[in-house]
């Protein structure tokens, strides 16, 4: 009896996830999806999203891995505060994040004088898109990486040292390979969050084709601009991307 209840509950949630996605994907004939994707607006949004999310992921991996490592290894006072800070962007509403970025990095923001002196304009640029994406998505990676590093048997790192590998080489030959599933999983979540980012993007980077109109913004704008087919086609693309990445990662993990 209990088993039946558990199975039904699981099936309900699974169905709730699958049905809307399937409904969306099956809404248009594939031919219509393809032709909608060939519009310049669709292609621009696609390229922009790919470009910005990849850059955002690269930045997150480069800066987030050391941070995760420090949080997992170093014991210092205030570490739990830093842990909490890293988690903040997950809880803060994206529009709030966008507003914060705008008020600090915007034209009349806190850093405006410094930026102006350097001749840098951030708001309304593709750089702003990347900044918004990094802000909202990096915590997903850092949390996963930190957990991955914490789970590693320190003795293995000691063994590596006694065998003659310095700290950096130990990190790349022992720590990273052993933490790889966690790092990969975190990177996927991070990328997915960056791909779907909307609120902070439109607030800080604005909405301009080719500059800041990422896939989510394009879906939203096409929806009310009356181009439902384009909106649906772009949505299908996003679902396909996400599914492909998730499948690839799971396959990798199994190996």
């Amino acid at each position: 009896m209990i088993r039946a209840v558990v199975a039904v509950a699981a099936a309900l949630l699974l169905a709730f996830i699958i049905i809307p996605l399937a409904g969306l994907v099956l809404h248009l004939a594939p031919r219509d999806i393809v032709s909608a994707l060939q519009t310049p607006a669709a292609q621009s949004a696609l390229c922009l999203s790919l470009l910005t999310t990849v850059i955002a992921l690269a930045i997150t991996l480069t800066l987030g891995t050391p941070l995760a490592y420090i949080l997992a290894r170093a014991a210092f006072r205030g570490r739990s505060i830093v842990d909490a800070i890293v988690d903040l962007p997950i809880v803060v509403p994206p529009a709030v994040a966008g507003l914060a970025l705008l008020l600090v990095f915007g034209r009349t923001g806190t850093f405006a004088p410094v930026l102006a002196r350097l001749g840098i304009q951030l708001s309304f640029t593709t750089a702003a898109v990347v900044m918004a994406q990094v802000f909202v998505s990096s915590p997903f990676y850092v949390r996963a990486a930190r957990a991955g590093f914490l789970n590693i048997d320190r003795t293995l790192e000691s063994a590596s040292a006694t065998l003659g590998m310095g700290p950096l080489r130990t990190f790349f030959f022992v720590t990273v390979p052993l933490a790889a599933p966690a790092l990969l999983g975190g990177a996927v979540l991070c990328w997915a969050r960056a791909l779907g980012e909307f609120g902070a993007t439109i607030m800080f980077a604005g909405n301009l084709l080719g500059v800041s109109q990422t896939l989510p913004l394009a879906v939203y704008l096409n929806l009310e601009g009356g181009s439902m087919p384009v909106a649906i086609a772009l949505s299908v693309i996003m679902i396909a991307f996400s599914a492909a990445v998730v499948i690839v990662v799971r396959l990798f993990e199994r190996r």
Binding site: G106, T108, F124, G206, Y220
Partner: peptide, 18 residues
């Protein structure tokens, strides 16, 4: 430089100097 989602967003952006 930006196509905002409604008129209030336009007003706000200009009012804060963006």
């Amino acid at each position: 430089v930006s196509n905002e989602l409604d008129v209030k967003a336009v007003a706000t952006k200009i009012s804060i100097g963006e």
